[in-house]
Each structure stands twice: as structure tokens, then as C-alpha cells.
Design a protein around this nucleic acid. Structure first.
Length: 476
RNA sequence: UCCCCUGUAGCUCAGUUGGCAGAGCAAGUGGCUGUUAACCACUGGGUCCGUGGUUCAAAUCCGCGCGGGGGAGCCA
């Protein structure tokens, strides 16, 4: 554990991560800590190294006696600077100074990797998120992005725990699809054809020679596929990457993002909405319970009031409003909008924000949208005008969930396809679900990174995923 | 894709009517100090995004290109 022959570590110490050390506070214990130097401060009598090993937000302060270092240790210390990877051994003591309850009274030091101070991009100061985005390989070493990474892990884990507790099966839907009919946005094409060569030779593209024998794409949604397993296992969900080739350049869109799509057999829209509300509350509650230290940082430095907001959402019922009522509400305040609301209009961002931030001041579920605004597979209401869709809107983020009860009646589904200029034969296997044992079912999609924006308070979606992909942006 | 803003030291930014390139932080050196966004002094540090133009003179004005941010649309 102690490394090479030039080690100045004490050999008989216990290796622990900083999270455990700060939790247990075993004063008197001999310890070895391995991590990265966040800051180094010299004084006459002591040298302070603050170490972070990623296990938690907090650093461990290691204190070396500046008057009791031999030449070898002093020389090693000379080459330690912000960013260096080191191991420090010593004994845990109560800290005589304010700022930390315990600290490591250090005597051993080993350097694994230096980090030249005149070149290392991360300084002992705050950096803009825009700058850090350009060094995405180093930004997880900062307070903010370390916290984002830990929260992201916990949220992914919470997704699975939520569905596991409720008897859902996790289904892996394909990322590559050869059907050009998912209808949820522009798709990335996948090919093994030599496009350069074909272009140089001036030939026409023959997809019969492509890998799949026809054009193939990255999936924009797992929903249609997961419905097949829903009609067999009852309660299912997907959680995986999703790809949209839209040329959208906003703080809330990515070309590659992660989406969670549950689907419940025999469930109608009210159960779907209840699931969505429980899901959001489970996730926010999990974050509050498991990531308090990280959230406290976001609350202090990124989004003041964040934790109180999350607590409030967790403990109060979501508001409900039909699309028709929402438009009536908006029409009362038509002067406030650039786009005047009317029945049949798509709700603009300004409309959604007004509803959640001004009218409701919290999460709002809007239901029963005009059928012309929504996808073909949504269950049609008896009024002939609306479908059983529901969008969960939250302040600051806007739409975080989009879902619906699905149309399970064969004839009505085919008619909806034709109305939207889709070819039923392209959806033959999807239609089979309505021919053999069709049943009411409902589901929704939650954008994982939008959830992350909501939970952390981070404004830009590119800062809540490790390596964001967006138009003209695929570095790292 | 459209609209607006923006690009100057490692980072964040200032730079007046077009007239010798600046500050804070970071880095280096020294000092002080159980420090904790440490403090004090000194030092080094520039393709002013690129390109073309206007001008005696361009970081500054104009055209084009590229990058970044915000808003809109698409949506999760």
C-alpha cells in the first residue's frame, strides 16, 4: 500500500478515505490518506496541505511540523503544489484551530504525481463554468464538479431504487434503431459505409451494403420498444443514453443525454401522474438525505434557497391543471406575454414559467393537451379534441417530464397515425401490441440532466454531465 | 436555425473622442504568520480570437470567418 522505496510513509498505518475519517473522527488513530492537494499553505512552524480524495466534499487538513522535517521530507515537500497526487501518513488529532474539527498531524509524505504550479490550469481561486468546460478532463477536481458528480451518481442510484421498490423491471432498449419512425426529433445516422470514398467516386449511396442493410440511427427514445416489455412484464422502465441531432443551442438541451422512461400496464393517466410525482419526490428526498454536504455547497454558492425549495417540493402535493384551464389562466394575463395565449397554441416557455413561477409557485402537472400538439400514440379523449397527455413543469427548469396514457385501441391508433402522415406499416410490431392482448398503459420520460439541473441548481445542462455533447461540441 | 451580447496576461475583467497594453487574482522571489479564498513587498508574464479593409495611426471603426454566453424554436 505504501508505494516505492522512496516512500516516507509510515508502514503501519490504516488506509481510509476522507469521508470515513471525517465521519468517524477516530482521534489518535494512525492513518494514511491518499488524494490530491487542493491547497498548500506555509507558516513559520507548520505547513498545511489540504487533501481531497473525492470521497466527499470536505478536504482533510494535514499539518506538517515545519521545524521537524528531515532533508528528504523537506525536499519532497518543495515539489508539492495544488493538484499533486500524494499520500500522507500521520495521526488524527483534534484541530487546535477553527475551520475543521479534526486534522492529520502528518509526518510521512509520498508524492505520486507532481502538478507544476506554473502550468496547472486549476488555481486556488474560483473559475468560471465556461472556462472549466474547456478543461472537462480536469474540472471534476473542483468543488462544484466533484459535487455534481457525486449527486449525479446518487440520483442514478435513486432511480433504480425507486423502481425496484415498486416492482418495476429495468429493460435495456436498443440504442441503434433501423426504423426511421420514432418521430421524437432529428436522428444521428449510424453507418459503416465509406462515405468519403463514395463521395470521391461520385457514387450513389447503397444502404443495402451498409452494416444493417438499410439506414440506421441512434435512438431518440426507448419508449416504443419498452412498451413491448410493458405488455409482458407489466411495470418496466428504461434508463439509458438518448441521442437527438437537433441543432438546439440552449442551457437545457444536449445532443446526448440520459432519459428515464417508465411504462405501466393497466395504468391510466391519474396513476401515471401519481407515479411521476412520487418519482420526483423520491429523487429530491434522496438527494437531501444522501448529499447534504454537496447540496449545502450548491445552496451557498450556486443557487441560494435551493435546499429549502427541495424540501418544500418534497413535502407538498403537486398542482394539477388541464391545458384548457391553463390557457384560461394565461388569457387573464395576456398582457404579460410576447406570445398571446389561445386554445390550441403550444405553451411557450414564458407561459410555462408564468404558470409554475407566478401562479402555482411550485411543480405543476398540465394535462389533456390538444391532440394536434402531441404525439400519435397518446390516448384520445372522448371530446375528440384532446389527448391524455401530462407535462410536469417546475420553476426555473420548465418541462422536466413529458408523459401520457397510450392509445391502446387499434383503430384509433391507426387513424391517429394517418392524421399525422405516418405509415402504419412502418409501425407493424407496435401495432401488433394493439392486436394481441392490448391493454391500457401509461408512462413518461424524465430527462436525467434536467433533473440534475433542478436538484443542484446548476444553470447550464452542459455542467451536469461529465462530457457534454452539443452542436459543434464533442471534445474529450 | 433566428435574435442579442461577447472574445485583451494562466483566470476574471478595465481600456475614454482611434494616439506607448492595464488592474485584481494566479505564478516566481523575499518577509510575516496555527494557516484555512491567508497577508505584505517586489518580479516576470501579451499573436489584444483569425482575416481583409478604412486611417498618418486600430485592442478601439467596418466586412467576413471562428469560438463563448444569453434569449427563442425543437423537446427531455
Amino acid at each position: 500500500m505504501n508505494g516505492g522505496s522512496n516512500s516516507y510513509l509510515h508502514k503501519e498505518t490504516i488506509m481510509q478515505d476522507i469521508k470515513a475519517i471525517l465521519k468517524e473522527r477516530a482521534v489518535g488513530a494512525s492513518l494514511t490518506v491518499k488524494g490530491w492537494v487542493r491547497t498548500k499553505r506555509d507558516t513559520k512552524n507548520a505547513i498545511f496541505l489540504e487533501l481531497n480524495d473525492g470521497s466527499c466534499f470536505a478536504n482533510l487538513q494535514c499539518v506538517f511540523d515545519n521545524n521537524a522535517m528531515d532533508d528528504a521530507l523537506r525536499q519532497a515537500m518543495e515539489s508539492v503544489s495544488t493538484g499533486a497526487a500524494v499520500a500522507v501518513s500521520g495521526s488524527l488529532v483534534d484541530s487546535p484551530a477553527a475551520g475543521q474539527p479534526v486534522e492529520l498531524k502528518a509526518s510521512g509524505l509520498e508524492i505520486y504525481g507532481e502538478s507544476p504550479a506554473d502550468a496547472y490550469p486549476l488555481q486556488k481561486k474560483s473559475h468560471s463554468f465556461e472556462f472549466l468546460r474547456e478543461i472537462a478532463h480536469l474540472r471534476p477536481r473542483t468543488n462544484t464538479f466533484g459535487a455534481v458528480a457525486r449527486v449525479r451518481h446518487q440520483m442514478a442510484f435513486a432511480v433504480h431504487s425507486f423502481f425496484e421498490e415498486r416492482g418495476f423491471n429495468y429493460v435495456h432498449t436498443p440504442l441503434i434503431t433501423a426504423s426511421d419512425c420514432e418521430g421524437a426529433g432529428e436522428m444521428f445516422q449510424v453507418t459503416t459505409l465509406d462515405l468519403d470514398g463514395i463521395a470521391k467516386r461520385g457514387e450513389a449511396v447503397d444502404y443495402g451494403k451498409d452494416f444493417f442493410g438499410k439506414p440506421a440511427y441512434l435512438s431518440v427514445s426507448g419508449q416504443l420498444n419498452v412498451e413491448t416489455y410493458c405488455m409482458a412484464l407489466g411495470k418496466v422502465y428504461t434508463f439509458g443514453p438518448t441521442f437527438r441531432a437537433e441543432n438546439s443551442n440552449t442551457p437545457r438541451h444536449l445532443a446526448e443525454f440520459w432519459m428515464i422512461e417508465p411504462e405501466m400496464a393497466f395504468a391510466e393517466l391519474p396513476e401515471d401522474m401519481a407515479l411521476a410525482e412520487d418519482f420526483i419526490k423520491h429523487l429530491l428526498g434522496w438527494a437531501l438525505d444522501k448529499c447534504g454536504e454537496d447540496l449545502a455547497f450548491f445552496d451557498k454558492r450556486v443557487q441560494p434557497g435551493l435546499m429549502a425549495m427541495l424540501e418544500a417540493v418534497r413535502s407538498s402535493p403537486f398542482a394539477h391543471m388541464s391545458y384548457t384551464d391553463a390557457v384560461k389562466e394565461l388569457e387573464k394575463h395576456a398582457d404579460a406575454f410576447e406570445f398571446k395565449p389561445y386554445w390550441g397554441c403550444d405553451l411557450q416557455t414564458e407561459h410555462e414559467r408564468y404558470l409554475t413561477e407566478t401562479v402555482i409557485k411550485g411543480p405543476l402537472i398540465v394535462t389533456d393537451y390538444p391532440k394536434d400538439l402531441k404525439a400519435f400514440y397518446m390516448r384520445q379523449n372522448d371530446d375528440g379534441k384532446t389527448v391524455r397527455a401530462m407535462d410536469v413543469l417546475v420553476p426555473r427548469i420548465g418541462e422536466i417530464i413529458g408523459g401520457s396514457e397510450r392509445e391502446y385501441r387499434y383503430d384509433l391508433l391507426v387513424k391517429a397515425m394517418l392524421d399525422k402522415k405516418l405509415k402504419p406499416e412502418d409501425y407493424w410490431w407496435y401495432l401488433d401490441l394493439r392486436r394481441y392482448g392490448s391493454a391500457p398503459h401509461s408512462g413518461f420520460g424524465l430527462g436525467f440532466e434536467r433533473l440534475m439541473r433542478y436538484v443542484t441548481g446548476m444553470e447550464n445542462i452542459r455542467d451536469v454531465i461529465p462530457f457534454p455533447r452539443a452542436p459543434k461540441q464533442a471534445d474529450f
